[in-house]
Design a binder for these strands. Sequence first.
DNA 1: TTTTGTGAACTAGTTCACAGCT
DNA 2: AGCTGTGAACTAGTTCACAAAA
Lengths: 222, 222
Amino acid sequence: MNRPNKRRQTPEQVSELTTNRLSVYLRCLNELDAAAVETISSQALAEQFQLNAAQIRKDLAYFGEFGVRGVGYYVKDLRRHLRQILGLDQHLRVVIMGAGNLGMALADYPGFRQEGFEIAALFDAANEKIGHESRAGVPIYDIKELRRLARRERLDIAVIAVPAPQAQPVVDQVIQAGIKAILNFSPGSLKVPAEIKLKSVDLTVSLESLSFFLAQHEAPRA
Amino acid sequence: MNRPNKRRQTPEQVSELTTNRLSVYLRCLNELDAAAVETISSQALAEQFQLNAAQIRKDLAYFGEFGVRGVGYYVKDLRRHLRQILGLDQHLRVVIMGAGNLGMALADYPGFRQEGFEIAALFDAANEKIGHESRAGVPIYDIKELRRLARRERLDIAVIAVPAPQAQPVVDQVIQAGIKAILNFSPGSLKVPAEIKLKSVDLTVSLESLSFFLAQHEAPRA
DNA sequence: TTTTGTGAACTAGTTCACAGCT
DNA sequence: AGCTGTGAACTAGTTCACAAAA
């Protein structure tokens, strides 16, 4: 029933918009599965979020034919496929650069562990932090130890939570250590070689986008 | 020199992609201004990030004619215009819902204050937190006090940093309190009326997008 | 000459609509 | 009958290329 008979493992270049949606679908399927729902149609799935059913079918069709005509998608089945497509069957190890407020909060963020990510370590340059650990027990190492740790243990993803001026040098060290995927929370643009995947979450830009909205819609205040 | 002689205050519907880029330009202009640079061409600006010069000119042209042909843009001038377009001349007041790790970290995040946002308060439902304050001195109130505070003081933006199950009810309260713009950090999709601007930052989706990248590019691990 | 502002061309992403499978 | 998978049509976003301004 679930032999993706076409285009299996042929993701050529799927847009990031598509893969982001896959994450969203997966979360929804987790909930449906927990609620013991057996099958779901693209239509029903689309109604959950603000989305078109054809969009969902197209997104999934990049990776195989997971559905059954006349029925929809088997929840367990599709969930398993999405986890595999997103690489979540692999247990990825994450390090967080910067043990400030944000870094510590991210280290203990329950959402990460939930989907199978392991927060392996925090790194900081401040002596007084090194040797301690986050509330949830993530150890804080000296940033100089990064390469050593990376050699000993596999590290898949680095999260950048250092102040803006340190961001580029820290990213350079992360790349030196052989880490290929970076989630950046520092503001401003970072330079990375083409083979490295950098994803940035810019909190200031997000707030300013709301500010723009208010400026356009609110009666211009006195 | 800086009379936007056309289409002033005519933003009809500008794409969010455009407004996000305006934030990025502004940050760059801040740095240029600090470095006492007087003028900048779209070409030079484009080289800073991974962007096309025509893109920048188009983005700016939505709001007026800010440039001078043969010269480029006057840094101070354009900076002032962008701040005005983004509504940053207005000193916006932000509340953070949820005084957990993430909420507290966001409350003290220096990047927000920097651009003129004021973090007015944290709100939580847990009695033991209420009455305390963040390290930087943001007071923590009972979430039941939100409407009262909103009536007394203007509150422009709410940041949602509560666990997923509480997100929707908290958002409903925020809207009840008359707040029109929401920055959501909780995972999952939230329902808001059309006149409310909701911007979501989904940390799990971000990490999973990196996971996808690794799954595609890394030699499939044993 | 330099560089903007912008129509035209192009590219990417979404939605429609329907053939084809169950 | 119901729902997927997908080409075709459409919409949004980006880049090109050039006339016009300083």
